[in-house]
């Protein structure tokens, strides 16, 4: 339990794949180097480094408490809001350090959207749920612009047909799956480049889950997506790359197919086959 950077053979840098599986020519836009996270005295993340490819889905898997959600929250500095939480190391997006003093965290979160475990629409109308982000960021000027953005965001989230006739109804009145898609639409509306998803389907039933998974599949073409999931099947279905975490360390990171079919590390294999977790 010390904070020394991970230099073991399990270190992530060693297994960064040379050719990402998604679209050809995609570059790594997000890179984490030697990231550590402490909650007070307790260390939660031990020197994790990885490159996240652009416009693809990267899944974080691992047993409960392995730090995958904590690591995810580093990318939009959501950990700042937790009392006593310290993040070390370096995370860059497009080569720019997200911890640099000149960066306002609000600006970062407009670029890096987040979808949470439990659907958490604002207790406002469906319309206002979508329009809120663009409004505070000054992305829309007129009512017509807002209307158009609300419509396109809901369409991208595949929710338009279901809610177009009741945009003034409260977002909290939708079903769980619809609420989660509303949250995704809300995130999309601010025009992010990266979307972080923290177990987005854990509170949903299988049908709603498969709808959201299809949506993730479509969104991949426009956005860089990082998804934390406790379901290995889901990771296998939606992601191109998978990272396996255990006890705050990145054990293995590679092409999803390779991780599931031919894991290099013993611990990965044990987890995938259900022996740990």
């Amino acid at each position: 339990m010390n904070a020394t950077p991970d230099t073991s053979p399990m270190g992530a840098n060693r297994i960064i794949p040379s050719a990402p599986a998604s679209s050809a020519g995609a570059e790594s836009r997000i890179s984490a180097r030697d990231v550590t996270v402490h909650y007070g005295e307790k260390q939660a993340i031990f020197g994790v480094s990885m490159e996240v490819p652009e416009k693809s889905v990267t899944a974080f898997i691992g047993p409960s408490g392995c730090g995958k959600s904590t690591f995810l929250r580093c990318f939009n500095r959501m950990n700042d809001t937790i009392e006593g939480c310290r993040v070390g190391g370096e995370i860059t997006i497009d080569g720019e350090d997200i911890h640099r003093p000149s960066l306002d965290v609000v600006e970062l979160r407009a670029r890096v959207g987040m979808v949470f475990q439990k659907p958490n629409p604002f207790p406002k109308s469906i319309y206002d749920n979508i329009a809120y982000g663009p409004r505070i960021h000054g992305l829309v000027k007129s009512k017509a612009e807002t209307d158009a953005l609300v419509e396109s965001s809901l369409k991208k989230a595949g929710l338009w047909k279901e809610v177009s006739d009741r945009l003034d109804q409260p977002g909290t009145g939708l079903s769980g799956g619809q609420q989660q898609r509303l949250c995704i639409a809300r995130t999309i509306a601010t025009g992010p480049e990266v979307i972080l998803m923290d177990e987005p389907c854990s509170a949903l039933d299988p049908i709603a889950t498969s709808i959201v998974e299809d949506l993730i599949h479509e969104l991949r073409e426009q956005y860089t997506i990082i998804i934390v999931t406790h379901s290995m099947q889901q990771a296998a279905r939606v992601s191109q790359k998978t990272a396996f975490f255990h006890l705050g360390k990145l054990i293995e990171y590679g092409e999803t197919e390779q991780i599931f079919v031919n894991p290099r590390e013993k611990q990965t294999e044990a987890y995938i086959t259900g022996r740990i977790g």
């Binding site: 809001t81 407009a110 987040m114 439990k118 809120y132 982000g133 505070i136």
Partner: peptide, 23 residues
């Protein structure tokens, strides 16, 4: 107030003041 509401507001890029006064 449930933390999920605060997270929702912060996650979308609301400043702390906006989170408090809008949500």
């Amino acid at each position: 107030v449930p933390p999920s509401l605060r997270q929702a507001a912060l996650g979308i890029g609301a400043s702390k003041t906006q989170m408090v006064f809008h949500h």
